[in-house]
């Protein structure tokens, strides 16, 4: 399983791409990733944004697993707690990768 999270649009003019791939995680964390993705219900979510507010970030979350891929774009205000927890976890789990760049090139 591979989870990629692109975040942008916030007060800080950067785009961050954070990736957690089961192949690069410990067995325990790979299982935790699978569980958190399941709890987040990402395969059932559709894009949600609502009204646009200055400096409020949005997230593109891509999950690849067993040949399936699902991608959603969510505004920060539309994040279910389980998705917020997944984003936080992916950004801190040992073995994750992260890229930083300016908007348009990040």
């Amino acid at each position: 399983m591979r989870v990629s999270i692109v975040q942008g649009g916030g007060l800080v003019p950067i785009v961050t791409t954070t990736i957690a791939d089961s192949a690069s995680l410990s067995h325990e964390n790979a299982e935790a990733l699978r569980r958190k993705v399941e709890e987040a219900g990402l395969f059932g979510l559709s894009a949600a944004g609502g009204d646009r507010h200055p400096d409020r970030p949005s997230y593109e979350i891509t999950v690849e697993h067993d040949g399936r891929q699902n991608q959603v774009v969510l505004d920060d205000a539309a994040l279910p707690d389980a998705v917020r927890s997944l984003i936080s976890w992916v950004g801190s789990v040992p073995g994750h990768q992260q890229r930083i760049g300016p908007p348009g090139r990040g």
């Binding site: 942008g8 649009g9 646009r52 949005s58 300016p102 908007p103 348009g104 990040g106």
Partner: peptide, 26 residues
């Protein structure tokens, strides 16, 4: 990573396409 232009010559015409990479069109 500060990529701000100071002149229209360097204006970045990014799309406003709901893609977090494009910062609501820069």
């Amino acid at each position: 990573f500060d990529d701000q232009p100071a002149h229209m010559d360097a204006y970045q015409d990014l799309p406003d396409d709901n893609n977090p990479r494009n910062d609501n069109g820069g």
